[in-house]
């Protein structure tokens, strides 16, 4: 089992890399109770965990692609701590592809590493121009329904088993897809811990499974509410529009007060261009059981909503 830490910058690798140190790293009062719950339960279940891997970058927004110098600083810090290194990348426009290229050049020039891709164009670039880098399919390309408003109902209420069976699986369920990925050099795939539970039986096709805690993603957009803050009204909410990284300070919590079901205390979080859910205690226990069963190869701890930028 590999334990990875998603860092916002090299400064987070300055001291001892135990999970307990990062349980309270989330400075948001809205999300901190969730990360504290998950961290505390993880430590209770597995003891204090020392990270052996680190992840750096962003999965959701091309405006948060780090600079080459920030990447180099993070790489150096990771090497000093003897951590394996994974670069997270988002879905991208052609501009994003252009921004990623120098990062891949630097990573390849520093002895290589893993790249999480969430866009087929990024994989194409990696395979053609950076064959020494190791591609990992990101969770955005894991096409499962993860709508926490309704999918948990299928796991608890009397629902057709054929429907739950589909909802707990994803595109990874098909052997032909696993063969396609391995043929493309992809050995590891990322998932989210789903509110309705995960069927991870696709691991039989030889893919390693990596996942995240304590947040899962719901939806994402090229249109960012927070970026609209600095535009005049008629110019707000344009796809890919430049921003001032308002997401670094802006956070919006939604309470599902209009639920037609009993889950009116449910919370969703908007950070930048993406919506997230937090893992509940029962979801965490389901994840722990999968770790114990050896189904999960890597867990990446994200001490805060994963929308940080490193310059």
């Amino acid at each position: 089992m590999e334990w990875s830490l998603h860092i916002g910058g090299a400064h987070e690798l300055a001291s001892e890399l135990w999970l307990s140190r990062f349980v309270e790293a989330d400075r948001s009062q809205l999300t901190q109770p969730w990360s504290e719950l998950a961290g505390r339960l993880l430590v209770t279940e597995f003891g204090d965990i020392r990270f052996t891997h680190c992840a750096f970058g962003n999965e959701f927004c091309e405006h948060l692609i780090p600079s080459v110098s920030a990447l180099q600083t993070a790489l150096t810090a990771a090497q000093q701590q003897q951590l394996s290194f994974t670069l997270l990348t988002p879905y991208v426009s052609n501009e994003g592809i252009a921004a990623l290229r120098p990062l891949f050049e630097r990573l390849a020039g520093n002895g290589g590493g893993e790249v999480v891709f969430n866009d087929w164009g990024v994989l194409n670039l990696l395979r053609r121009d950076f064959p020494t880098l190791i591609p990992i399919q990101g969770r955005l390309l894991n096409k499962s329904l993860r709508d926490p408003r309704v999918t948990p109902m299928y796991a608890t209420a009397p629902a057709p088993s054929s429907a739950l069976n589909v909802l707990q699986r994803s595109n990874l369920d098909c052997e032909s897809y696993a063969a396609l990925l391995t043929g493309l050099g992809v050995q590891t795939v990322e998932t989210d811990n789903l509110p309705q539970g995960n069927d991870l039986s696709f691991a039989q096709y030889g893919l390693r499974i990596a996942t995240y805690a304590p947040f899962g993603f719901i939806s994402t957009s090229r249109i960012c509410m927070a970026a609209g803050l600095h535009y005049r009204k008629a110019d707000k909410f344009q796809p890919g529009a430049p921003c001032r990284h308002e997401c670094q300070t802006h956070l919006l919590e939604y309470s599902y007060t209009n639920s037609p079901f009993g889950n009116r205390d449910q919370k969703f979080f908007l950070k930048g261009n993406s919506y997230f859910y937090a893992h509940t205690e029962s979801m965490l226990h389901a994840l722990f059981a999968q770790i114990r069963a050896g189904q999960i190869a890597r867990l990446t701890w994200q001490p805060r909503l994963p929308m940080t930028v490193a310059h």
């Binding site: 809205l30 879905y91 969430n118 955005l140 096409k143 499962s144 329904l145 993860r146 709508d147 408003r149 309704v150 999918t151 993603f217 719901i218 939806s219 994402t220 957009s221 919006l252 919590e253 939604y254 309470s255 599902y256 007060t257 209009n258 639920s259 037609p260 969703f268 919506y275």
Partner: peptide, 23 residues
């Protein structure tokens, strides 16, 4: 990259959000 449903019981996530309490 939207993993939600438009199922009639809950409606589209984007419009559903417009009716939720926020902080």
């Amino acid at each position: 990259f939207c993993s939600t449903t438009h199922h009639h019981t809950v409606g589209a996530f984007c419009t559903s959000l417009s009716e939720m309490d926020t902080q």
